[in-house]
Design a protein around this nucleic acid. Structure first.
Length: 956
RNA sequence: GCGGGGGUAGCCAAGCUGGCCAACGGCAUAGGACUUAAGAUCCUAGACCUUAGGGUUUCAUGGGUUCGAAUCCCAUCCCCCGCACCA
């Protein structure tokens, strides 16, 4: 039973390749261009990644048999520092990485070659193409393969940026970037590519509040500038040594780490002295905005590493402040050593500033008390703080103590108060990370102000509007994303598009010190696949790819002769490429994982709109969800996931492709489950054997042949309809279950006609080809069909034979009714009598059909009256009026054609024909009689219950 | 918080432009066929009740719209994801 799928796969992959059916060249057919969002080259992929890629191939294959000229190109994205850090780690023989590489099949010899980033990229490019995509039977046009680090690709990116500049979408402004003093800019993300600690850190915006203290200013950093009206004291860590710095003509006092951080964000910071925390305590300072003179108190919780190491105190709304102030008030004697007298301490009283539903005057107090916090060291203070902040920010209103802001919503007041203080010189803005971030080199990462950072202006109103409008006409799946993408586009603002430091990528064309970052160089690239084939075969070199060259081939700008001369290529080549672009673009489908919904897809759309004309805008997006591991996403960096070569070996490519396609819709995460894959593989085994058996049959035509043809025509219509929506799961259900079941029923019913079987097999194999192409080719060949099924043409439906289907349904439902009666009545029958309905019954259906056709509407009185006009019907009196009533109520929404099936079908002939079959199925002799037969055997008078579609049954 | 998605029978998972739905399909389960046996395969059953093909109650919970709702509306509870220089 077990087949060698590996051999079958290899055989057909080789034949496809030899025949070049994967190659996409311009011709007269309509085109279809599909890509999947290329993966970043960051290591080995696992079985989950192949899900989306497989969908792209299956869709491409389906379009191919519909007669489209399909282009399915692939590439990889290697921009960034992934390859750099991988190469570094291999070079320094990092044990984790060596083990990871070896576990995935990398040999020692290969490892030795992987000590520079480009070797790493080439190594993985090779694996992706050969071990993954080709191994999965993809009909991709391999000649078009490209990678973001190829020089020719870089020329295209430079051109893209020149066009963005031309469109006024490149802007420069200051930017606050995570920065390592050794390595330059670093990326902070959960996968921790650049850093060794702090992947979840966020950049936070602090407001620096300046408190007059003699000629100096004590500077506190706060995330809640709206609470300044509640300031009643000032916290300083007595054990910290603070530094004095000058900035903008002012003298500031901040912690030493804060001074260093400030120096990265302000140009003029000069440190010139120190001041001990304990020396400041007991004095007073003047709070901004309120002008209140407040005492300086000691607080150990002031961390010199956070903010400025000084904190303004708003006990009404800050649980920390509340509990600390309470502690001091309760233990005034402990503070005498700081020169604080009890009277001063006692005079400090919180000021109520924010009204929140469900809280009293002092939200901080309520939060602290409801959690039962009594000590300043309680770790639950963090929770209390979050709760108060959250409730206050979203549900709070400023009280009358807040001057001009009284009555305002807190979220609104926050920005206004902050801005007012900045305008009056009482505050400035400072950026800091929410937790410690450490660079891979060991240095702590801080936020640095970059003045001349380049951004792509995705906030541009006109661009957003045009892009958003275009999306309405696109095919975007799932539909939820089609609805939601507008929101995502609106939400986009400027986005930093270049960076410096440890980075592989294309140099920014307007300033060489910048390198284009990883999102920005992977948005317009589908168009480049049209050109890459000419770069790959050597017809055109990177130096030929001038701005005018791309202007001509992408935008049709300029004069062919002049452009060709300038670029140094022939006019015919130039025009040929231009024709290719006109033929292939726009892209029909860009398929990618759900992680792309908020970043890649929007910028993909924006860049197309910004650079290319109306008729080259993308037509479709499909988003696929993940295959996950137990409990968590199987991550390529974590290892341990099922490696692809092993899985392919164990299950076979087709079984995996069927698994991806059928186990769930595209739009839901699925937990990887080997048993499922095995069960799909078994289904393929069964289909294989069954199809082989069918090929051996050579019987005669019978009624069941009409039925099978009709069913398969319905399936063809169904598949065509589902695939309009790219619904591969429905395709799989039809091809691997419904069609299979129908064929089994056909055989069970004695079907064996060679011609019918041939037709059915042809369509069946074609229907399976998009998902299990290798098996399909094998069967196609065994059945003796010409050429490749991958290269065949899918038929149109030849129509439905509803009377054949009606007859077959009648037989099935009769068998099922018999079974049910036997079960419920627990009768041990020895013979079964089936009575078909009397002719007058059918007449009523016929009359009902006429009424429906006339458009008068089917009603009980209407049908009864017309029926009773017929003497034969009237003779049956009550039974007739009952049936008329039943028909009128049940069939009121049916089509006349359906009613005619009831009235015109010769049920007696159908069931008599099938009586032997039914006897075999049921296991007891079945005798078919007609209610019209006066001489029939009918001891219990059951026959009168027979109606069309439902013969009477008597068990004896 | 903002934005988005979801809760379906033992498990996974379709359906969700309202009626063809007791609800596709798979896995697991039970009965039968085949077999010396096991396995594989095939058929049948599958919420509950029912001695004639019938009935009753289901699609997170509670309301509502409708002749009719898993499907539409409202409220509640619970789960998941994205929030930027990260592809």
């Amino acid at each position: 039973m077990a087949r060698d799928y590996t051999d079958i796969e290899a055989k057909w992959q080789a034949r496809w390749s030899a025949a070049g059916i994967n190659v996409a060249s311009r011709d007269e057919r309509p085109k279809f261009m599909i890509i999947f969002a290329y993966p970043g080259v960051t290591g080995y992929l696992h079985v989950g990644h192949l899900r989306g890629y497989t969908y792209a191939d299956a869709i491409g294959r389906y379009k191919r048999i519909l007669g489209y000229n399909v282009m399915f190109p692939v590439g990889t994205h290697a921009t960034g520092n992934g390859a750099i850090s991988l190469a570094k780690r291999i070079k320094r023989k990092d044990q984790d990485i060596i083990r990871y590489m070896k576990d995935n099949g990398c040999t020692d010899e290969q490892l030795r070659g992987l000590n520079d980033p480009m070797s790493v990229v080439d190594f993985f490019n090779n694996i992706y193409v050969n071990d993954y995509w080709k191994r999965f039977g993809f009909l991709a046009d391999w000649r078009r393969f490209t990678c973001t680090l190829y020089p020719d690709y870089g020329m295209f990116i430079k051109w893209q940026f020149r066009k963005l500049m031309e469109a006024g979408l490149l802007i420069q402004k200051p930017y606050y970037a995570p920065f390592c003093s050794n390595c330059g800019p670093v990326a902070i993300d959960a996968s921790e590519t650049d850093i060794s600690k702090g992947g979840n850190a966020e950049t936070q915006e602090y407001t620096l509040l300046k408190f007059d203290f003699g000629e100096m200013k004590l500077v506190a950093a706060t995330l809640r500038p709206e609470t300044v009206y509640g300031q009643v004291c000032f916290w300083i860590n007595p054990d910290t040594e603070y530094v004095k710095i000058t900035h903008n003509g002012e003298i500031w006092v901040v912690s030493k780490p804060a001074a260093d951080k400030l120096a990265m964000q302000f140009d003029d910071i000069q440190a010139f002295g120190t001041v001990r925390g304990r020396d400041l305590i007991g004095w007073t300072c003047k709070a901004p905005i309120v002008g209140r003179i407040i005492p300086i108190l000691p607080a150990k919780f002031c961390d010199p590493e956070v903010g400025t190491g000084m904190v303004t105190s708003v006990p009404s709304d800050s649980p920390d402040d509340w509990i600390n102030l309470k502690y001091i008030k309760d233990h005034p004697n402990d503070y005498a050593k700081y020169g604080l007298d009890g009277k001063t301490i006692a005079s400090i009283n919180p000021i109520s500033i924010i009204k929140i539903e469900g809280y009293g005057d002092m939200p901080a107090k309520d939060a602290v008390e409801s959690l039962g916090i009594t000590s300043p060291d309680d770790p639950r203070l963090e929770e209390a703080k979050k709760q108060v902040y959250k409730d206050g920010f979203h549900a709070g209103r400023m009280r009358e103590t807040c001057g001009p802001y009284a009555g305002m919503r807190v979220d609104e007041a926050k920005d206004k108060i902050k801005q007012a203080m900045i305008d009056s010189g009482e505050a400035e803005i400072f950026h800091d990370l929410s937790e410690e971030v450490v660079c891979r080199c060991g240095e702590t990462v801080h936020i640095k102000r970059v003045d001349d950072q380049w951004f792509i202006d995705y906030g541009n109103r006109e661009l957003t509007k045009k892009t958003s409008e275009h999306c309405r006409d696109m095919e975007i799946y799932p539909p939820e994303y089609h609805a939601n993408v507008h929101g995502v586009l609106d939400w986009f603002r400027e986005r930093a598009c270049v960076r410096q430091g440890n980075w592989l990528g294309t140099r920014f064309p307007f300033d060489d010190k910048w390198i284009i970052e990883a999102i920005s160089d992977s948005t317009l690239y589908p168009a480049y696949y049209i050109v890459s084939v000419y770069a790959n075969n050597g017809n055109i070199k990177p130096e030929n790819m001038t701005e005018k060259f791309f202007d001509y081939v992408m935008l049709g700008r300029g004069d062919a002769k002049e452009v060709a001369a300038e670029a140094g290529i022939s006019v015919s080549l130039l025009c040929n490429i231009r024709e290719d672009v006109k033929y292939w673009y726009p892209l029909d489908i860009n398929l990618g994982g759900k992680e792309h919904m908020t970043v890649h897809f929007p910028v993909f759309l924006f860049n197309h709109m910004a650079v290319l004309p109306e008729d080259m805008q993308p037509k479709g997006i499909i988003v696929n969800w993940y295959i996950t591991g137990k409990k968590s996403k199987i991550s390529k960096s974590k290892g341990g996931a099922q490696p692809i070569p092993g899985a392919v070996e164990a299950f076979g490519v087709d079984a995996m492709r069927l698994y991806y396609s059928h186990v769930a819709s595209m739009f839901v995460d699925v937990e990887w489950n080997e048993e499922m894959v095995v069960s799909y593989r078994q289904r393929l085994d069964r289909i294989f054997s069954f199809a082989e058996d069918m090929m051996q049959m050579s019987g005669d035509m019978s009624d069941i042949d009409r039925w099978l043809c009709s069913r398969f025509n319905a399936h063809v219509t169904g598949i065509r309809g589902s695939m309009e929506r790219y619904d591969l799961r429905q395709l799989a259900t039809t091809a691997y279950y419904e069609m299979f079941n129908d064929l089994k029923w056909y055989v069970r019913r004695g079907g064996s006609d060679k011609a019918t079987i041939n037709d059915a097999l042809r369509v069946w194999i074609q229907s399976m080809m998009p998902i299990t192409p290798h098996m399909a080719e094998e069967l196609w060949e065994m059945a003796g069909f010409e050429g490749f099924v991958s290269d065949s043409l899918y038929p149109e439906s030849k129509g439905i034979d509803s009377s054949a289907e009606y007859g077959e349904d009648l037989i099935r439902s009769t068998i099922s009714d018999v079974a049910q009666i036997r079960k419920v009545a627990s009768i041990d029958a020895t013979k079964i009598y089936i009575y078909t309905a009397a002719a007058w019954n059918r007449k009523i259906y016929s009359i009902a059909a006429d009424i429906l056709e006339s458009g008068n509407g089917l009603t009980i009185p209407g049908l009864t009256k017309e029926s009773m006009a017929d003497p034969e019907i009237r003779n049956n009196g009550k039974a007739a009026s009952e049936l008329a009533k039943k028909v009128a109520t049940e069939m009121v929404r049916e089509s006349p054609a359906k009613l005619h099936l009831y009235s015109d079908s010769d049920e007696h002939a159908v069931l008599s024909e099938a009586s032997r079959f039914m006897s075999e199925e049921i296991g007891i002799p079945v005798i078919v009689l007609s209610a019209d037969d006066d001489m029939k055997y009918d001891p219990k008078g059951k026959s009168s219950a027979a109606v069309p579609g439902r013969p009477a049954i008597y068990l004896e």
